[in-house]
Design a protein around this nucleic acid. Structure first.
Lengths: 234, 234
DNA sequence: CGTCATGTTGAGAGCCCTCAAACGTCGTGG
DNA sequence: CCACGACGTTTGAGGGCTCTCAACATGACG
């Protein structure tokens, strides 16, 4: 982690468009920026850790982040991903609780830390921000409840197909419109779906043999989306 | 389901105290009540169903409700419980989406249906209500994310112990301070933890043999809370 | 008292995990 | 440049936890 100076602009000139803050006025964005700190994290570095208390709201300027929970035997469960424009740690901050997840940089991450007060003040004054926050929470909640059902009832192949589609939706595809545009290990894919690494690899290999996906070194091509979707909807 | 007249008071004289609405003024509560409808549901009746669109916000006057999702093979997953003072269906209503869960009465339920507009109008004007709603969502989200980890990593006995403790926390104990104060089937307990009925019964029976709980007809006594907690924390 | 849901228990199977070994890749430091 | 170690990938063998299926008991309820 490296503290940065002046490499990231103030919130009022942030190029990220789909953030919760997009409804705010320039003035409000300026207020949000006061005492904002900028950081650079390298791949694998932890931005915050489960069990620590938040000192501010993180907002990703660029890069990808995974949010995970540590199980009792060192096995992690990935809860969700975040990328540029997304905010991190807002759940814990709003509840004034310890972080319940750990945030880890998946590649080079430029990130802003906004003082708690800035956010809370705006939340109290801007009804639009409130509604945006509520939208964010409802969408996260729905996704999480679906994940409960999924992990609880679906079998490994179905959950794995689901994980691949989740990656496609979050990170998109490369220019060939087939290859997942994300660098991720087999272990992490398994941690998305609650599968051990060995089984993840075995099942990916099955998908490969069946021509549903194509594995080339670290790249994963989704050849038959319809089949994956059929799996995922089981 | 039976529509009721005048058996439930207006929101401004509702005796339930721990609701999201407790911060509102008498005037605001009056506004909330406009065109409110009251219903009576008997045990087993569905208050709303996954896939339908909400017409209003439900607020439980009395009784217990389970919220569940239907899996692909008729197997349900219980997402959470609600009782007097709790609101239902707010997630779907706020997101303007279909219900993602089905709400079923666990016993006699008296419930109010508040028109969407009433709630939305208040949400826009009352910052306190916004913050209360955000609190509710963050707490639900945290619980749901923990459930993902639980179902994904813990074994059956641990999840079952967790379910029993959840029931204790939500519904409390009877006067003997041991017996769960809720009427619930084995199948439903299994559906909380993502366990089949047969395995649920077998594992409860194991707990019984080990003196951790005591099973007498439908009643469940939690004899050794510390052991249950140790299981749950695995 | 019949009927249907719920509870209980047994036997067997299978999915997935655990453990282990071997191989490839990448970055680091000598 | 190569040796080395750390990490990720791959595959096999074996086992066990939990599900499935089935039969029967019990209880609720008209």
């Amino acid at each position: 982690m490296k503290k940065l100076e002046n490499t990231i602009p103030s919130c009022d000139s942030c190029p990220n468009e789909k953030s919760v803050f997009c409804s705010l006025s320039q003035l409000e964005l300026g207020e949000l920026s006061i005492n904002k700190k900028n950081y650079h994290y390298k791949k694998g570095e932890e931005i915050f850790q489960e069990g620590n208390y938040p000192h501010g709201l993180f907002c990703i300027f660029s890069g990808g982040v995974k949010l995970s929970k540590r199980g009792n035997e060192g096995k992690d469960q990935i809860i969700r991903f975040a990328k540029s424009g997304d905010i991190l740690g807002y759940r814990s901050m709003l509840a004034k609780q310890m972080y319940s997840t750990t945030a880890t940089a998946m590649d080079d991450v430029l990130i802003c830390q906004i003082p708690i007060q800035n956010f809370e003040t705006l939340l109290r004054s801007s009804n639009k921000l409130c509604m945006k926050t509520i939208e964010l929470l409802t969408s996260d909640l729905k996704r999480s409840e679906n994940q409960v059902l999924s992990v609880s009832q679906k079998r490994v192949a179905d959950r794995l197909a689901e994980a691949l589609l989740t990656l496609k939706n979050k990170f998109g595809l490369k220019e060939d419109r087939l290859t997942l545009n994300v660098q991720i290990t087999r272990r992490e894919i398994g941690e998305m779906a609650g599968i051990t690494t060995a089984t993840t690899i075995r099942t990916l290999s099955d998908f490969n043999k069946d021509g549903i996906i194509e594995l080339k070194s670290k790249e994963i091509k989704l050849l038959k989306l319809d089949v994956l979707e059929r799996f995922a909807s089981h």
